[in-house]
């Protein structure tokens, strides 16, 4: 049921965006194991997401602690879009953030950022 309602919300969101004339879908990938695996790789790699520099993640080694551990993400971010926005530009919610602006400053491409969001949201 949770899945179903998420899907419905997504459909609504997609429709709204299309009707608003600002379609923003880059690639039509399914959230399958491959996407999650790619997201994880991007999240762990130093040159890409490097989330482990500051966040503890289950299964990640040598993690830092500048930011909070990435866990219970579905509870903390019921809306995936909010999580995405936070990773895209964390300074919107906190001007004094120590987190890089992964989307706004192009550290991750939009499609890579999508994959990272998918993975982080499973934590």
């Amino acid at each position: 049921m949770i899945n179903m309602s998420t899907r419905l919300t997504s459909i609504a969101a997609a429709a709204a965006i299309v009707l608003g004339g600002t379609l923003s879908i880059s690639t039509a990938v399914a959230v399958d194991a491959k996407v999650l695996e790619e997201g994880k790789t991007l999240a762990f790699k130093r040159k890409d997401g490097n989330c482990l520099a500051c966040h503890v993640i289950e299964g990640g080694e040598a993690a830092g602690n500048i930011g909070p551990p990435l866990m219970m993400m579905k509870i903390r971010y019921p809306d995936k879009a909010v999580l995405r926005a936070q990773i895209w530009d964390s300074s919107v919610r906190n001007a004094e953030t120590a987190m890089p602006l992964f989307g706004k400053y192009g550290i991750l491409s939009e499609s890579d950022l999508d994959k990272v969001v998918e993975y982080i949201h499973t934590l």
């Binding site: 520099a53 500051c54 830092g64 602690n65 500048i66 004094e96 890089p100 602006l101 400053y105 550290i107």
Partner: peptide, 18 residues
């Protein structure tokens, strides 16, 4: 990466990066 010197050494000293 949008860091000031202070972000690490005044805001977060003692914290771990990796």
């Amino acid at each position: 990466l949008n860091f000031a010197c202070a972000a690490c050494h005044v805001q977060n000293p003692g914290m771990k990066i990796r």
